[in-house]
Design a protein around this nucleic acid. Structure first.
Length: 574
RNA sequence: GCGGCUGUAGUCUAGUCUGGUUAGGACUUGGGCCUUCCAAGCCUACGACCCGGGUUCAAAUCCCGGCAGCCGCACCA
């Protein structure tokens, strides 16, 4: 169905509406209503079935407020800060660094705003649109800032993604997994971005829910042990090549996508397949799903390969609902550097290697007095480097200039001895690469609603898969007579005791109740009629074709339970 | 963040230009009647001028500001 119709019904029936309505609302914030809340929880629960249960990834939960240092390391403090300038004449707003870069070719990324303002005026740069004068440069930061503690000493931010909460405790997570790769960790939760002008409903929110997975793998082994399970799955791939050639998306089996090198690795392809299976399980038809590869200039500089799972919409075109990226070792390396914690993993070789090595040994009696305070740094550098380089240099020129932090120290044979040593190396320390499937839950809910709502004649049916329906069973008395109502109440209560989400409705006529029930996606309705009083049978009505079967009262729960959770087909009841 | 248009019950809408009775209607919803299976009918009830300020004897109506929505521009690690 169309965006506008879906959003109208979603609001009317209690799935979604914009927040703070009685105070005029605030752009970029949405409430999930009574049905939306349950639908969202069920979708998140299904997601857990896939990733936590199916893949064996553990779930963690980290704070939504993060200290500045952590987000400096991730790059968000610097990168999320866009320098802006405005044309005083035509009032267009531009990225100041982009204007300078285009006009002068200089890379000015990361320069302070004052500096950018100075360059704009020195270079006499003007508005690329109308040639008018530009204002001073100001920052627009997409993160919500706050203050941690009463004295306000520490700057905090609301997290712009849940992923960082997984990278930061990596050492503990690695230890939890007994030091072995690969392993995956997930987090579901809220993330926040202060979007400049969010105007696409639930597609662009300032507070939104993510479900993210970080899979830590050995960079040299990006295969997947269960790849054969998905090898024959069909993926609708819109590769970077196709996009550049203005081509179309092409269907590949997962196997062929790997063999032809369309997707960079087996494990990434496996993740694409898993995402597709999940979306189909939510009732999103395959025809409206495609995988679009990021173009080189679009991809973060550190990523190897990145695919967006996109859904076709009438209103917004193809929208990204999941991003699946190979982020390499960027995040861990960066946190390692900023926190000075070693976030590498020790990987043991199959066979220990014995290596012969030339070691430079400083003669400490001479070394210390000569270099004084610099001595420890020089020793550290000697340990790291290949000593044969120094020996060669001694033979050629008699000395070796060693540069440390901009200072050159002259090493001479007088203070260095060489020693041939044999070392047994059992393995090496490496930064794992990270495969990151990142789901936008709100966008997925939107996609589910958009593609599960169907118009049939003048009625609207929300064809949700039974197990994610926010109301699972409606129980109706055929007409509003006390004898029938009593039985219906009893059935509803029994179903609730058994754990099904069941509602009772006697208002209006039976037809109206079926219509309402269809519109909120209740998969099955139990109707109590006069025959029930005679022979203890009721009818079960199937939402999608409004067909009914009559079953004994005592079988109601078992029948509905297996229809909803064991995916029994309704036709099997005929 | 800029410009244009818009804002009346849950929804759609009349009234706004030209200020003046109790803001009218339809659908929906609640209660009742009727009713033996898909939004029927009858009775009845609830429910609104986006927020703030100004002009005026009087503001849904005119003016200013804010907020929100739509469209265009810009932005979207």
């Amino acid at each position: 169905m169309k965006n506008d119709e879906v959003m109208t019904i979603a609001k009317k029936r209690g799935f979604l509406w914009s927040s703070f309505e009685i105070y005029s609302g605030v752009a970029g914030f949405f409430d999930y209503g009574p049905l939306g809340g349950t639908l969202k929880n069920k979708i998140m629960e299904k997601w857990r079935e896939y990733y936590v249960i199916g893949e064996g990834f553990f779930e963690i939960e980290s704070p939504t407020i993060m200290p500045e240092e952590a987000l400096k390391a991730s790059g968000h403090v610097d990168h999320f800060n866009d320098p802006m300038t405005e044309c005083k004449d035509c009032l267009n707003v531009f990225r100041a660094d982009h204007i300078i870069n285009e006009a002068t070719g200089k890379d000015v990324e990361g320069l302070p705003n004052e500096e950018l303002s100075r360059i704009l005026s020195e270079e006499k740069l003007s508005c690329p649109n109308c040639g008018g004068p530009l204002t001073h440069v100001w920052s627009y930061n997409l993160m919500f800032q706050t203050i941690i503690g009463s004295k306000g000493k520490q700057t905090g931010y609301l997290r712009p993604e849940t992923a960082q909460g997984i990278f930061i405790p990596f050492k503990r997570l690695l230890r939890f997994n007994r030091g072995k790769l690969p392993f995956g960790v997930v987090q579901l939760g809220k993330a926040y971005r202060n979007e400049i002008s969010p105007r696409q409903g639930v597609i662009r929110l300032r507070e939104f829910t993510q479900a993210e997975v970080e899979i830590f793998v050995d960079p040299r082994d990006k295969t997947h042990p269960r790849f054969h399970e998905v090898a024959e799955d069909t993926l609708n791939l819109y590769s970077a090549q196709s996009q550049t050639d203005e081509g179309d998306s092409v269907k590949y089996t997962a196997q062929k996508a790997v063999d032809d090198g369309i997707v960079s690795s087996q494990i990434l392809t496996y993740q694409l397949c898993l995402a597709l299976r999940f979306l189909k399980d939510l009732g999103i038809p395959e025809e409206v799903i495609r995988f679009r590869q990021h173009l080189c200039n679009e991809m973060a500089h550190y990523a190897i390969d990145c695919w967006d799972v996109e859904i076709e919409t009438d209103r917004y075109g193809w929208i990204e609902i999941i991003g699946i990226a190979d982020r390499t070792d960027f995040d861990l390396k960066s946190h390692s550097k900023h926190s000075k914690e070693d976030l590498r993993v020790f990987i043991e070789y199959d066979q220990p290697k014995t290596v012969k090595k030339l070691v430079a040994k400083p003669q400490m009696k001479k070394f210390g007095p000569l270099f004084k305070a610099d001595a420890p740094k020089i020793m550290e550098a000697l340990k790291e480097m290949d000593a044969s380089q120094i020996k060669d240099s001694f033979q050629e020129s008699g000395d070796y200039p060693l540069e440390i932090e901009g200072k050159t120290h002259i090493l001479t044979p007088y203070i260095i001895d060489f020693q041939e040593v044999e070392e047994t190396v059992r393995g090496e320390k490496i930064f794992p690469h990270v495969i990151e499937p990142s789901y936008g839950i709100d966008r997925i809910i939107y996609s589910v609603l958009l593609h599960c709502f169907h118009k049939e004649g003048d009625r609207t049916i929300l064809k949700l898969p039974a197990d994610i329906a926010p109301v699972e069973v409606n129980v109706f008395p055929l007409v509003n007579k006390e004898e029938l109502a009593t039985v219906a109440w009893g059935i509803r209560d029994e179903l609730r005791r058994e754990g099904l989400i069941a509602e009772y409705d006697a208002s209006g006529t039976i037809g109206r109740r079926y219509a309402r029930s269809d519109e909120i996606g209740v998969p099955y309705a139990v109707t109590v009629d006069h025959q029930t009083l005679e022979d203890d049978t009721v009818t079960i009505r199937n939402r999608d074709d409004s067909k009914q079967v009559r079953i004994p009262l005592e079988d109601v729960y078992m029948t509905l339970g297996s229809l909803i959770y064991l995916k029994t087909e309704f036709e099997e009841l005929y």
